Simulated scan of single mutants.
Amino acid sequence: MTELSLVGQAAFQPANTADIADAIVKASGMRIEIDRRRGRGATLNPSGRFESQERVAFDDGWQTLEDMPPFRTEVQVERPRSVITRNDSPDLPFDRSVNPYRGCEHGCVYCFARPSHAYMGLSAGLDFEAKLFAKPDAPRLLERELGKPGYKPKTIAIGTNTDPYQPIEREWRIMRQILEVLDKANHPVMIVTKSALVTRDIDILASMAERGLVKVGLSVTTLDRKLARLMEPRASTPAKRLEAIRKLSDAGIPTSVLASPLIPALNDHELERILDSAKVAGACEASYVLLRLPLEVSPLFRDWLLQHYPDRYRHVMSLLRSMRDGKDYDAEFGKRMRGTGPYAWQISRRFEMAAKRLGLGRRSAQLRDDLFVPPLGSGVQLSLL
């Protein structure tokens, strides 16, 4: 076994996302053997889009591909200078977020955050879910940034890029330390996760909820355990996520359900069942997002679809493109989350009718920012007065 290096931009740098998808999906030699990626979501591991070479493993007659080691989770420490990320997107209900980790072991094949791994010189495929970065300094940096003169508190979102409660959080406990900083400062926070591990921090979350400082969203993509296992192999099972909604709700923590992403002809028929189940579990809010396939996510998702649901491939992609102006993805604000066209309108109406019937409002729980107390802990510059 050896690796073939395709030098320059020729091999996998086509003109647009659709061409990238076709190039990678047709390159069957790039699909990683199942024994090497067992328990992972992606089937490919193409080089990052900024790399000048593309490496493809192939059998040269000396060794077999079966001799290559499986992908194992590796965690490196990242030392950022700041931890609060700002945005001005009109599609998002927040303007700042914190990410304790880079990459995500949950391995959701559709994850829109996968392309961010290219900035680390890594693949958006299997590298994204196996080569992870932890930010142990995040709690200290957050405390310092909250204590800066002139800081104005507004809700911080956590879990909007990669999941703060992914499996490595059990060991690193960075998210819990972040919550301790926010709790002490009376700072509002909104959490999104696919993990039942969030219930570990009910003691902190319940205390913050009493002051109107927190709400938690559980993403429930499907109620089909088999489909969930294929799409998001290391995330909590659907039943565990619904149980987490119940435990959080019973503790007085405002909890919402995110039916996302909705994938046409694959899981969109479950929309009403997901909302029904979440309401019974105690959810008070609901939302949904249409499948997004930016950059490398498109070929990764398409190859996954070809391997696991080849009979639905054309139908799924045809419906998706009908909602994206004929493309795999449209990044335009106002369109990227919901899509356009008759099928997108139908999904929107179904959601609105089900949410209204169940009393699941959108963003009904307003968080308080008038209780904020600037931290005076380690790393915060004290006043000279």
Rank of each mutant, 00 (worst) to 15 (best):
M1T: 14
F12I: 11
P14T: 07
A15Y: 10
N16R: 07
A18S: 11
D19A: 15
I20G: 00
I20H: 12
M30R: 13
I32D: 00
E33I: 00
R36M: 06
A42M: 00
S52C: 06
E54L: 12
E54I: 02
A57S: 11
F58Y: 15
D60Y: 07
T64F: 07
D67K: 05
M68R: 15
V77G: 02
N99E: 13
R102H: 11
C104D: 11
G107P: 04
R114C: 04
P115D: 06
P115H: 08
Y119Q: 11
D127F: 04
D137S: 12
D137K: 12
A138V: 05
R140E: 12
L146N: 10
T162S: 15
V181R: 05
L182A: 09
S195C: 08
V198C: 10
T199R: 08
T199H: 03
R200F: 07
M208N: 06
M208S: 08
L227M: 15
L242D: 14
R246A: 12
K247C: 03
K247I: 05
S256M: 13
L258T: 05
P261A: 08
D268S: 07
H269F: 13
E272V: 12
V280M: 02
A283L: 06
L290P: 00
Y309I: 04
M323L: 09
M323T: 15
E332I: 02
R336Y: 06
R336N: 04
P342M: 08
Q346R: 14
Q346I: 02
R349H: 10
R350H: 12
F351G: 03
A355M: 01
R362Q: 09
R363C: 04
S364L: 11
S364R: 15
R368G: 01
L376W: 01
L376I: 09
L385E: 15
